[in-house]
């Protein structure tokens, strides 16, 4: 029962994060939500008995992927500020 509740919270939040990341117009917001999504995903996979994958996702999501995307997001945000248009 606790586990089911646990699962439900995990999934609900995961989906919320995904929706939020996908619907964010502001690039940095989207990227940070995406990073959060990655962390959460690692959590979910850890729960699903896939620690190998969770390790990988954590290392990538929090490390390289996040940094790469943040750099891009910063550029996009600056461009948005300059042009006022969409990134």
């Amino acid at each position: 029962m606790t586990l089911l509740l646990f699962d439900l919270v995990l999934i609900a939040t995961l989906l919320t994060l995904a929706v939020a990341a996908l619907t964010s117009v502001e690039p940095r917001r989207a990227v940070m939500l995406f990073i959060a999504f990655g962390l959460w995903l690692a959590l979910v996979w850890a729960r699903l008995g896939a620690p190998d994958v969770a390790l990988a996702e954590a290392a990538i999501g929090a490390g390289l992927g996040g940094a790469l995307m943040l750099a891009a997001a910063r550029r996009a945000a600056r461009r948005r500020q300059r042009t006022g248009g969409e990134g």
Binding site: A42, A46, P51, D52, L55, A62, G63, G66, A67
Partner: peptide, 19 residues
């Protein structure tokens, strides 16, 4: 093994802030 996952979380906790 999840402790290792946690270890990675901890090691990389500040990367996003730095980036």
């Amino acid at each position: 093994a999840l402790i290792d996952v946690a270890l990675i979380f901890a090691l990389l906790a500040a990367v996003a802030a730095a980036a």
